[in-house]
Simulated assay, not measured.
Amino acid sequence: MKNILVINSGSSSLKFQLIQMPSEKVLASGLVERIGLDGAKIHYKTEDSTTSRELEIPDHGAALKKVTDLLMNKESGVIETSEDIDAIGHRVVHGGNTFSKTIVIDEEVKKAVKNLFSLAPLHNPHNLKGIEVAEKLFPNATQVAVFDTAFHSTIPSKAKQYAIPTEFYKDNHIQVYGFHGTSHKYVSEQAVKYLKKEHSRIISIHLGNGCSITAVKDGKSVDHSLGFGPVNGLIMGTRSGDIDQSVIFYMVEHLGYSTREVSDILHHKSGMYGLTGYSDLRDIQQKAAEGDKQCQLALNMNAYRIKKYIGAYAAAMNGLDAIVFTAGIGENSDVIRELVCEDMEYLGIEIDSEKNSQRSRDLRTISTENSKVKILVIPTNEELEIAKQVEELVDGN
């Protein structure tokens, strides 16, 4: 048995799970939120207890130290010393062209992650900080980096290159990298197991505050909606998704916005928030149900964008066996799933409204018996996927 601690460091949060492998038993899990801000909180859960309390947590180092203290606490802890942790899996958002697989962390890896800060300025710096702190707190544990972009390294050149001068690709590495790879890998593998098909064509739809959609053929990512950065593709909570580049030039050249201001608008003030004034889909669905025309339009725009990608990816793979809804919205919003799947009979997609309205934390089918394409809802588990990859790597060394 191996105890693997999975750490996901965000800009002001730190999620963690301590998983015993290969049994996949979660010994402890939790979240530290509002790091460096007023009202910081730590949530901690074990099989026997659940606690939440407000603390002063100035930085990620202090956050991970609090987590360590809880894990080794005499009353609520699940380990005795830091040496009980065999390995630590760190989610790193961007691996660029440097990393296409999970890797044991050394000084060269840390240097490379730092060199990629410009590609993921909101994530990679915090990911690296989590690594550095964990090395000090768990000096005997094997530190492993699992990259969100790695799953998409199989995307072929015809799909990953942009039609701009080739030197930008060769010299500056401007291309489709893709994100949410750990989530897409996990749910697509679960779908393959469910389908029991030697060859499979699956569309994985990750819908949260950030959204993306992936074409997965025979277990490999062959196309993906997020590209060089995390703002294009589907309509998201505050991000615009696909937009005509001319709009950006117009905003700068004729409306007087700076490029930094335009970037801020597209990342933080657009998407569902820009359309409705709300970024939480639950609020938008409630307002739409009450008759708010703008919220109704936003929901229809959101679903329409997803439909277009489903059509494109079905064409790219020359067919479709299943579509998978996952992540917070994908797993919980029967409204979005219904809007996406209605009027898709031409592609063999038929949703069962009664099945769709039911709630479950397990893999479930929400398509009709006659539907040629399976419609699946599969809860994502990025932490377990990271633990699996860490275990496989450590056992192989």
Score class of each variant (00 low, 15 high):
residue 1 M to C: 03
residue 5 L to M: 06
residue 7 I to M: 06
residue 12 S to H: 13
residue 22 P to T: 05
residue 29 S to R: 09
residue 40 A to T: 03
residue 58 P to V: 03
residue 60 H to K: 10
residue 63 A to G: 10
residue 66 K to F: 08
residue 68 T to H: 05
residue 69 D to A: 13
residue 69 D to N: 12
residue 73 N to I: 02
residue 80 E to M: 13
residue 80 E to W: 01
residue 85 I to K: 09
residue 97 N to T: 13
residue 98 T to I: 13
residue 98 T to V: 13
residue 104 V to T: 14
residue 105 I to D: 00
residue 108 E to D: 14
residue 108 E to R: 15
residue 115 N to C: 07
residue 122 L to R: 03
residue 127 N to L: 03
residue 130 G to N: 05
residue 131 I to Y: 00
residue 144 V to Y: 01
residue 148 D to G: 00
residue 149 T to V: 05
residue 152 H to T: 04
residue 153 S to A: 12
residue 160 K to F: 12
residue 163 A to V: 11
residue 163 A to P: 15
residue 164 I to S: 07
residue 166 T to F: 10
residue 167 E to G: 04
residue 169 Y to R: 10
residue 170 K to S: 12
residue 175 Q to K: 13
residue 175 Q to P: 05
residue 182 T to L: 15
residue 184 H to I: 11
residue 187 V to Q: 09
residue 187 V to G: 09
residue 188 S to Q: 14
residue 190 Q to C: 15
residue 199 H to Q: 15
residue 201 R to Y: 01
residue 201 R to S: 10
residue 204 S to W: 01
residue 205 I to E: 08
residue 206 H to C: 07
residue 208 G to T: 06
residue 215 A to Y: 02
residue 218 D to V: 12
residue 222 V to D: 04
residue 223 D to T: 02
residue 239 R to T: 03
residue 251 M to V: 02
residue 258 S to I: 03
residue 273 Y to W: 08
residue 274 G to V: 03
residue 275 L to Q: 12
residue 282 R to F: 01
residue 285 Q to F: 00
residue 288 A to Y: 01
residue 296 Q to C: 06
residue 298 A to S: 10
residue 305 R to E: 05
residue 305 R to N: 08
residue 306 I to C: 02
residue 308 K to N: 08
residue 310 I to N: 05
residue 310 I to P: 02
residue 314 A to S: 14
residue 321 D to H: 06
residue 331 E to W: 01
residue 331 E to R: 08
residue 332 N to H: 14
residue 332 N to Q: 14
residue 344 M to G: 10
residue 347 L to R: 15
residue 348 G to M: 12
residue 353 S to R: 11
residue 366 I to P: 07
residue 368 T to F: 07
residue 373 V to W: 02
residue 380 T to Y: 01
residue 385 E to V: 09
residue 389 Q to T: 11
residue 393 L to N: 07
residue 396 G to Q: 14
